[in-house]
Design a protein around this nucleic acid. Structure first.
Length: 245
DNA sequence: CCATTAAAGTGGT
DNA sequence: ACCACTTTAATGG
């Protein structure tokens, strides 16, 4: 089932897919509160799918295949603007839900998604999931809560993109990554390695500006960089820069 | 080991 | 912010 390294990149479909009825019941944030009956239904319907790092999971505009619950790994959710430039919407972590379309007649992916690491997701067919939403009010409510929180974050970020300086936006992007995936060790090494381009796409700037701001912050002792590895040495100073203090 | 390519960094406009 | 150029790192024979 494991493809060779040579054809990894060409893969569009998940490298791994199976019906998995004896996996432990999902412990995703949204599903934690739904009824036993509902969990059993999901358990029967679900398929576990895997994607390699760098693989595309969703392509915006394509028909939505259903809903994905992120089990393991990290996923970048983004839109592509008129110039073909990526705009990063958010980073998903285990427990998050990805790929839900609100259009019930002709469901379409509203965002694109790629795996930042080897990733495992749990897939539930779109129509079946909508049916479950209709039958389990608690599930629907949890979903509402989840997207309400996401919407709030997105609103805050679009406000920032419009008003902040480049340095502030990059600092904010670093804090955003930290809040999404955390950091390891005393040095607070970010648990996600992004290209300068990706950081730019998150901060609403260019990769060149990101390079410059990063060396600037490094000289000020707020961060340390080693290739794509970034240490948040002075987190509170960064948060202050980002207006989060 | 070297050659090719992609990404990072830098300076000028 | 954008472009052009240099440097560095990663990849593959």
């Amino acid at each position: 089932m494991q493809p060779s390294a040579a054809n990894k990149k060409q893969l569009v479909e998940p490298f791994y897919e199976l019906s998995c009825h004896n996996c432990p019941v999902l412990d995703c944030s949204v599903l934690r509160h739904c009824t036993q009956d509902c969990l059993e239904k999901i358990d029967k319907l679900k398929k576990v799918v895997g994607f390699f790092k760098g693989q595309r999971i969703l392509l915006e505009g394509n028909p939505a295949r259903g809903v994905y619950f992120l089990l393991q790994g990290k996923v970048k959710l983004f839109k592509t603007d008129v110039r073909g430039q990526e705009v990063i919407i958010r980073f998903a972590k285990p427990g998050d839900i990805v790929g839900l379309s609100v259009n019930t007649e002709r469901p379409e992916n509203e965002v694109s998604a790629t795996a930042m690491e080897d990733t495992m997701l749990c897939h539930v067919n779109h129509d079946a999931f909508v049916e479950l939403l209709n039958s389990d009010a608690k599930l629907a409510f949890e979903l509402l809560r989840f997207y309400r929180a996401e919407l709030h974050k997105t609103e805050m970020r679009s406000l920032k993109l419009a008003t902040m300086t480049v340095q502030e936006k990059v600092a904010d992007a670093l804090v955003t990554i930290y809040e999404a995936y955390g950091a390891e060790g005393k040095q607070r090494t970010l648990c996600l390695e992004l290209s300068r381009q990706d950081i730019g796409n998150l901060a609403g700037t260019t990769k060149e500006q990101v390079s410059k701001v990063l060396t600037d912050l490094k000289n000020k002792g707020m961060i340390d960089t080693n290739g794509k590895q970034i240490d948040l040495i002075n987190l509170s100073a960064l948060m202050q820069l980002a207006g989060l203090a």
